[in-house]
Design a protein around this nucleic acid. Structure first.
Ligand code: ATP
Ligand code: MG
Length: 642
DNA sequence: AACGTTTCCTTTTTT
DNA sequence: AGGAAACGTT
């Protein structure tokens, strides 16, 4: 076993544990992920083949963290998200009911679009506003599926919907399922559902999958929802489950995760043991003191307080500014200053509750030419022009892809919704790309050549996605220039970026799958250098660490977030979000705020800023403005819709 | 049937 | 920023 660190006694017990299933319950920075990595190395050193070990977790970033810590030398070892593991199973096993290359994986935007179209049919014209939004329908549906309950049961338990509103949600939810199926769409939940259902209904299949592993190691176990638990449950008889988790860091209840499930680990999994780690190796004690205080304010009982091993360190600061621009400039100036003194840009992580609130900070990074990478928030493929090009590719590989065809066809002058609908109606009955081309040809006659040119170009280069996109882009240039005549030069680079991303994939289907499962965030990744500042959402930052951590907008309305004040459970989850953010910092923790509050913003309840009454000895206040109260500012200033 | 203009709404967080 | 609804024009 080769680590640069010496494990402590508790870590050794976890690393060397060779009994049954085990759960390591321990706080932030105590080395849970370290234990997973060292265990994996230990098992391999004892002769376990790397391909007989799987490292799973929920978020992509936590999965990347595991992957980079284990390195590349163990060929066959799987380290990734549950979703990517499930997709890999579908690709590699012929006994699963789904061939993923025949399906199009859809993201949240597509899901919403599909439900929008369903809603338009289900509700009388002009009365749409009386009914729940597509976003609500999608959230209810997703939550119900993730927690393995029917939509009816979910609505009865959590929602106060009656009569036509209730029946609308139920109908929309069921039609969503049917529409997906008919269009050969698979959403994120489907990916897990296919595997979970197959394994539960067919024990022989579950055995065949699970017995390929000597051990399945799961990081961030508090984030698992019942759907993911179902996959784990069906593996329990045939492999060893080694899970690590921290109830204080549970921040995915909104998608059905339930940290009680790790409390009841030994009940749920027979012949299992719970282990503990109690020393934090990440952060200075001054940082841990503040984090401990935040969790102490909760009425819920989490496990013990964090005890550090790295000395006291500097007291965290909260710097107050009058506006978001000054705040952003302070952050970027601080980064530049330390860079001048030899510190790397990559030592800095800027943690956001919502990425849409990062506008000023991004602008400031750009203006000072600081290289940075954005993780979380809007995807590159959420932009109108990137969606257009992607629609051409999707329409080509899946003639049943209604949303792609609708978007693609209506790009062309003279083709509106009515014509497109007529064509799509026929396409939905088609069997092949060949047939699809025929249908478009017949429907459009003279205009068909222009519409089909990009489609033909893409289908000609299916195994050279770079070339496929390049030639499609060439054929669509005229439309793009016309449709985006005001700002084409600004949009153009995103499409070139798409082409270069496609270049690295083996075929167009893989291109779509890869970037739907792991989208690029933000449009410009500034600078070519490896050394970059990371601008990241707290949800994505879980499991990660940084020498210096910035937490901007530490103020009323953000922690807890205005939209998550509706219940005690929501507020407690928000408290854990802040706790996760604080515990990312190794040496320096720099909170700040932009002076304004959130008056007028749509809230779901009432709650004070978590640090409103923080003891002075835990946090240094700097700057002129008083600790921010609920101040007067237009709601759109926060959300970035202005 | 298509399209331009205006006005309003929406996504908080991840897969 | 994207998209839909409403309304008027072509
Ligand atoms: N025994 C040790 N000696 C020195 N450093 C250690 C030791 N164990 C862990 N570390 C370091 O402490 C830091 C935190 O460890 P790790 O990320 O594994 O914690 P974690 O429990 O997974 O945290 P989180 O809950 O945030 O995911 C890492 O930089 C790791 O390398
Ligand atoms: Mg970890």
């Amino acid at each position: 076993m080769s680590s640069q660190f010496v494990s402590n006694r508790q870590q050794r017990a976890a690393i060397e544990w060779r009994g049954g299933h085990a759960l390591v319950m321990a706080g932030a920075g105590t080395g849970k992920t370290f234990t997973i990595i060292e265990r994996t190395k230990g098992l391999i050193a004892e002769g376990v083949e790397p391909k007989r070990i799987a490292l799973l977790t929920f978020t992509r970033r936590a999965a990347n963290e595991m992957r980079s810590r284990i390195g590349t030398k163990h060929e066959g070892l799987f380290a990734g998200t549950f979703h990517s593991w499930a997709i890999m199973q579908m690709h590699s096993r012929k006994d699963l009911p789904v061939r993923p290359e025949q399906w199009t994986i859809i993201d949240r935007d597509d899901q919403l679009q599909l439900i929008r179209r369903i809603k338009a049919q289900l509700t009388p014209k002009g009365e749409a506003r009386r009914f729940p939004t597509p976003g609500e329908v999608l959230n209810y549906t997703g939550y119900a599926r993730s927690t393995l309950v029917t939509i009816e049961a979910y609505l009865d338990k959590f929602m106060n919907l009656e009569g036509e509103q209730r029946s609308f949600v139920i109908k929309a939810s069921k039609q969503y399922r049917q529409h997906k199926q008919a269009r050969r769409y698979m959403d994120y939940d489907d990916i897990l559902e296919v595997i979970a259902a197959a394994m539960t209904e067919n024990p022989a299949l579950a055995h065949s999958i699970a017995s390929r592993y000597d051990e399945v190691l799961i990081d961030e176990g508090q984030d698992l929802n019942p759907l993911q638990w179902r996959i784990i449950d069906s593996m329990v008889p045939d492999t060893r489950i080694f899970m690590v988790g921290d109830d204080g860091q549970s921040i995915y209840a909104f998608r059905g995760a339930d940290f009680e499930s790790i409390h009841s680990f030994t009940k749920r999994i027979p012949d299992s043991k719970v282990l503990k780690l109690e020393e934090n190796y990440r952060s200075r004690q001054a940082i841990l003191d503040l984090a401990n205080w935040v969790l102490d304010q909760s009425p819920l009982q989490y496990q013990k307080r964090l005890r550090g091993t790295r000395g006291r360190g500097e007291r965290p600061i909260l710097h107050h500014f009058n506006n978001a621009f000054d705040e952003a400039d302070w952050i970027t100036n601080t980064i530049l200053e330390s860079h001048g003194e030899g510190e790397k840009f990559s030592s800095n992580k800027i943690l956001m509750r919502t990425m849409s609130a990062a506008k000023e900070i991004e602008a400031s990074l750009v203006s000072k030419n600081i290289p940075y990478i954005v993780i979380g928030g809007q995807s590159l493929f959420a932009l109108a022009h990137t969606k257009d090009l992607l629609a051409a590719v999707r329409a080509t590989v899946n003639p049943l892809d209604e949303l792609a065809w609708m978007r693609y066809l209506t790009l062309f002058e003279g083709i509106g919704e009515v014509t497109a609908d007529r064509i799509i109606e026929k396409l939905l009955k088609s069997q092949s790309v060949q047939e699809a081309k025929q249908i478009v040809q017949e429907a459009l006659d003279k205009r068909a050549a222009e519409v089909l040119a990009p489609i033909i170009a893409i289908s000609r280069h299916r195994t050279e996605p770079g070339e496929a996109l390049r030639s499609a882009l060439r054929a669509m240039k005229g439309i793009f220039k016309h449709n985006y005549r005001e700002d084409w030069s600004k949009r153009r680079p995103d499409l070139d970026l798409m082409v270069s991303l496609a270049e690295r994939r083996p075929d167009v289907v893989d291109f779509i799958e890869t970037y739907t499962l792991d989208p690029i965030h933000g449009t410009q990744v500034q600078g070519q250098s490896e050394d970059k500042v990371t601008l990241i959402t707290i949800h994505s930052a879980k499991g990660l660490e940084g020498k210096r951590v910035f937490i901007p907008q530490a103020q009323y309305g953000m922690y807890p977030f205005v939209r998550s004040m509706g219940s005690d459970a929501e507020i407690e989850e928000e408290r854990r979000v802040l706790y996760v953010a604080l515990t990312r910092a190794q040496d320096e923790l720099m909170l700040s705020n932009g002076g304004f509050g959130f008056a007028g913003f749509q809230t779901t309840g009432e709650a004070d800023f978590f640090l409103e009454r923080v003891p002075k000895k835990l946090l240094n206040h700097e700057g002129q403005a008083a600790p921010s109260q609920r101040g007067p500012i237009a709601p759109n200033d926060l959300a970035g819709w202005g």
